[in-house]
Design a protein around this nucleic acid. Sequence first.
DNA 1: AATCAAATGAGAATGACTCTCATCATAAGT
DNA 2: ACTTATGATGAGAGTCATTCTCATTTGATT
Lengths: 141, 141
Amino acid sequence: MESQELRNVGLKVTTPRLKILSLLEKSTEKHMTAETIYRLLSTGGEVIGLATVYRALAQFEAAGLITRHQFEGGQTVFELERGPHHDHIVCVRCGRVEEFYDKIIEERQRVISEKLGFTLSDHALTLYGECTPNCPKSHSA
Amino acid sequence: MESQELRNVGLKVTTPRLKILSLLEKSTEKHMTAETIYRLLSTGGEVIGLATVYRALAQFEAAGLITRHQFEGGQTVFELERGPHHDHIVCVRCGRVEEFYDKIIEERQRVISEKLGFTLSDHALTLYGECTPNCPKSHSA
DNA sequence: AATCAAATGAGAATGACTCTCATCATAAGT
DNA sequence: ACTTATGATGAGAGTCATTCTCATTTGATT
Ligand SMILES: [Zn+2]
Ligand SMILES: [Zn+2]
Ligand SMILES: [Zn+2]
Ligand SMILES: [Zn+2]
């Protein structure tokens, strides 16, 4: 139950938080903007303010329940933090987002930070390209 | 001369563009926001509108003269495109930015995109950490 | 059920960035 | 150098995502 997840991270269990969490869980789209979440909930008949959506997402992120990604040119997207860490590749034509994990890249990042005297705490890696030949927005499609 | 650089990429040679380009070249800080550039020019007595700074930077980027980076939590920063490609590591405490290039990471990115059926066109990699033990904002400093 | 801190919704405010448009400067032609 | 046409500029208005304010409501505890 989502209620427990909220309690576990020290957040009060409220209707807006539950609705947002379960939307993130049920949605087929893993990566969603605050606006999208707001719109989907509104369409579903819920009365949840946009400010509340932003607030809840910020808290979920601070609590480690979700992560935030800033793909270039787009709005910030959020996704549930489930399963192992991964990075993203985004189609610059149709916007499709795929995930990947590369052990070698992750290791190199540690080595590089150490060499530069940094204590690594986070990283953001996003690849951009075209998902040819299957891109729905390709001219030849 | 910067004038030639502008002509080479098909941009008219104007005073604002020259001032902006030469500020980017002379500045000790490699990575600057539009606001910073605007402020430095204003302080230097130049009358250059903020809109002009943004316009010029966008054109320089399109022409390949500069690159744009979006570090998390901060504004967009720009830097002259000189020398080989590199990625960045940012101190989350003091904001210091260091550059690095890792052949292995760059190669892996190609391999990964191919495997996923993407034609790679760009990527953004930024590491975040603390530049201990030399961080000027460290408590123990 | 009573209490009170915390959360919420609505709308105002913010901040980075872009657009509009009247004026101005550059580059090409004379 | 002078004219002209095209493109650039500055000032300020506009946009859009996100955050803030505050009166009201809700949830956890008693
Ligand atoms: Zn993801
Ligand atoms: Zn595509
Ligand atoms: Zn750099
Ligand atoms: Zn530091």
